[in-house]
């Protein structure tokens, strides 16, 4: 069954085919119920070239201390002083800005623009 958001997300699929979107697989449960462990998503690495992340955006960001780790989290509030707070949707199962503080905007690597699978 094609997910309904795929119809809205069709432009992203085209851009994926053109290499402008990256496919990623989510691990963990902190973004439930929207994203589950194993969900595929498309990320726009250029989303924040012209604008800052907005509250509610789901972003891909580098972990502030474990630099090899890439996190998928939701932007909790409008960025301030070039830093942004990221929080998991399922707060009790999430390691996020409540533990490691805000993240530099430079560590935000892109926006999750489409869920490909549940």
């Amino acid at each position: 069954m094609v997910h309904r958001s795929l119809i809205r997300g069709f432009p992203h699929l085209v851009l994926w085919a053109l290499g402008r979107r990256a496919r990623l697989r989510v691990r963990g449960t902190s973004m439930e119920p929207w994203l589950s462990d194993g969900s595929f998503v498309l990320v726009d690495p250029r989303a924040y070239r012209r604008r800052a992340p907005r509250a509610g955006d789901v972003v891909l960001a580098r972990h502030p201390y474990e630099r090899d780790l890439r996190l998928v989290k939701r932007v909790a509030s409008e960025p301030k002083d070039s830093r942004v707070a990221l929080v998991g949707d399922r707060a009790e199962a999430s390691h996020d800005s409540r533990d490691f503080g805000t993240v530099p905007l430079a560590d935000v690597m892109g926006q999750v623009v489409l869920k490909l699978s549940s």
């Binding site: 697989r25 691990r27 963990g28 449960t29 902190s30 994203l35 972990h63 780790l69 996190l71 490691f100």
Partner: peptide, 10 residues
């Protein structure tokens, strides 16, 4: 590539 929505790792 994988992206973490985890709490176990860190």
């Amino acid at each position: 590539p994988e992206a973490q929505a985890h709490c176990d790792g860190p």
